[in-house]
Each structure stands twice: as structure tokens, then as C-alpha cells.
């Protein structure tokens, strides 16, 4: 990790932490005048996050796809960019950052504890155009599922006590946005699985190897498919859909982080040759 990266990294952590603090004042202490401050802080932190990613890409010469640090850096960036993009239309989403920022902070903090990131090049296994497609859609898909899970959680809290989490919009709006995000994430992960299978066939000579990461990804795709299916055919909306959005995210957590605990996974490309 070069010095500039280190400085940016701690600035990002500080930016997100202070933003979360400002949102705490807005949501729990009803100090609405802090909201513009929180917005500016989030914009600033995301800008620094973007710079950090750019420095990482320039210094390593490859996409940030290797190891926990790079995956956490890119995954959290995609989440924040997605939220900023959606906040332009769904303004209540600004306040939902109170649930997302702790996850982003935990992810970044945990990744930095798993070992210093190196500047080594990628092994030949990564050298495929499908890598771009696969990880780009994975990051967007999983980011959408994360935001949907957080909204589902807020729905469940507000449904029990409508006075809490003021400003996050009504229950219907939360349910509607969670549904859109699940549909978006489902489309993204469909492309992720399809591109991953085609890439795997070029790399290992097999579309599907029942690798634990593959299987968990397919499982999460199936569970989110079930969410959409139940919503369309059985009218699962509101509380039931919120519970499903929260519980389904467990499968995403396992498929995204589980690889760290599986040594013989095909997804540990750095050890392939």
C-alpha cells in the first residue's frame, strides 16, 4: 500500500464515520439542519473513495479485483455510487445511509485487517475480458441487494413503530424501492452468473464446477428469484417481502465473503498457477 493510498484510506473512513454521526443527529435527535452537512460529507467521502480507487488502479495496473482489500474497496464504492445515484430521485434514501454507512465502514475496516494489500500483478487466470463483465455486474448486483436489505430492515422497524426513523419515507415507498432494487440486482446477478460460467468454460473447461462460491451465488440468485416470484404471483409485499429481502441477503454475504474461508475454491485465482 503506497503512502497516498494509506492517507486516502483513513480520510475515507473518517469521512464516512463523520457522515454517519451527522445522520445520527438527523434521524435520532431530529436535527434536520444537519442533513445538508451529512450530504456534503457523504459526497466528499465518495469523492475521496473514487480517488483511492483510481490510485489503486494506477499503482497496480489492474482492476481492483484481487484479495479482500481491493474487493471491499470496489464493492463499497459501487454501493455508495448506487445510493448517490438513486438519492437524486428518492430523496429519502439520503437518510437510509444511516444503515448503509456502518456496513461500509465495517467492510472497509475488516478488509484492511486481513493483511496489507500488495502491488503484484494479476495471474494469467484473470486475463480475460469476461472478468470485467463478471465483476462489474457482481458489484452492482450485490450493492443493490445490500441497499434492499437495509430498506427491508427499515421497513420492519417502521412497521412496528411508525414514529421511528422519521424522514425515511412511508412504508409503501420503502417497499417499492426495495422491490426495484431486488429486480435490478436480480438482473445484474443474472449477467454475473452467465458471464462467470462462460469465463469458467474458457479457464477450466467447464461451465459449472459446483465450486462453493458458485453454488452460493446460484443460491442467492434463486432466493431473490423466489422473492420476485412470490411478489408477482402470491402478492408478497410489505412485511413478508421485507423479511425476505433481509434474510436473502445472508446468501449474498456468504457468497461474497465466504471465499475467504474456503481455500480450495476456484475463485482463489491468485493460487491457480
Amino acid at each position: 500500500m503506497i503512502l497516498l493510498e494509506k492517507i486516502l484510506y483513513y480520510l475515507i473512513l473518517a469521512g464516512y464515520a463523520v457522515s454517519a454521526g451527522a445522520l445520527f443527529f438527523v434521524i435520532f435527535l431530529r436535527k434536520d439542519k444537519w442533513l445538508p452537512v451529512a450530504k456534503r460529507l457523504i459526497y466528499g467521502a465518495v469523492l475521496l473513495h473514487t480517488l483511492e480507487l483510481a490510485v489503486r488502479i494506477i499503482s497496480t495496473g489492474h482492476l481492483p479485483v484481487k484479495g479482500d482489500f481491493e474487493n471491499a474497496l470496489a464493492g463499497t464504492w459501487f454501493t455508495m455510487v448506487l445510493v448517490l445515484f438513486l438519492s437524486r430521485r428518492w430523496t429519502s434514501l439520503w437518510r437510509a445511509n444511516i444503515g448503509l454507512l456502518p456496513v461500509v465502514l465495517l467492510t472497509l475496516g475488516w478488509a484492511s485487517q486481513t493483511g496489507p494489500p500488495d502491488l503484484d500483478p494479476l495471474t494469467p487466470a484473470y486475463n480475460s475480458p469476461w472478468l470485467w463483465v463478471h465483476v462489474f455486474f457482481a458489484w452492482f448486483g450485490y450493492s443493490a441487494f445490500l441497499v434492499a436489505a437495509v430498506l427491508g430492515l427499515f421497513y420492519l422497524v417502521k412497521e412496528r413503530n411508525p414514529q421511528r426513523l422519521a424522514g425515511l419515507g412511508d412504508l409503501r415507498a420503502l417497499d417499492d424501492l426495495a422491490y426495484r432494487l431486488v429486480a435490478f440486482g436480480f438482473a445484474m446477478t443474472t449477467v454475473m452468473i452467465a458471464s462467470g460460467a462462460i469465463w469458467a468454460n474458457d479457464l477450466y473447461g467447464s461451465y459449472w464446477s459446483w465450486d462453493p462460491v458458485e453454488t452460493w451465488s446460484l443460491l442467492s440468485w434463486l432466493v431473490y428469484g423466489l422473492y420476485l416470484h412470490l411478489r408477482t404471483t402470491a402478492g408478497w409485499q410489505g412485511k413478508k417481502a421485507a423479511w425476505l429481502a433481509v434474510l436473502a441477503f445472508i446468501t449474498v454475504l456468504i457468497s461474497f465473503w465466504g471465499v475467504n474461508f474456503i481455500q480450495d475454491s476456484y475463485h482463489v485465482f491468485q493460487q491457480m498457477f
Binding site: W210, T215, W216, L219, L222, A234
Partner: peptide, 24 residues
Amino acid sequence: NQISVALLVAGAIVLVVRASVYSG
């Protein structure tokens, strides 16, 4: 619709078994 939900749940259970009990 009920059968299709049951099949999706069955598929999910099969995948959980494959990813955990019989991962190798």
C-alpha cells in the same frame, strides 16, 4: 404457482446441501 414456489424452495435446499454438506 404454489408448485413452482415449492420447487424453487426445494432447489434452494438442494443448493444449500451441495454448498455445505457436500461441498467437495
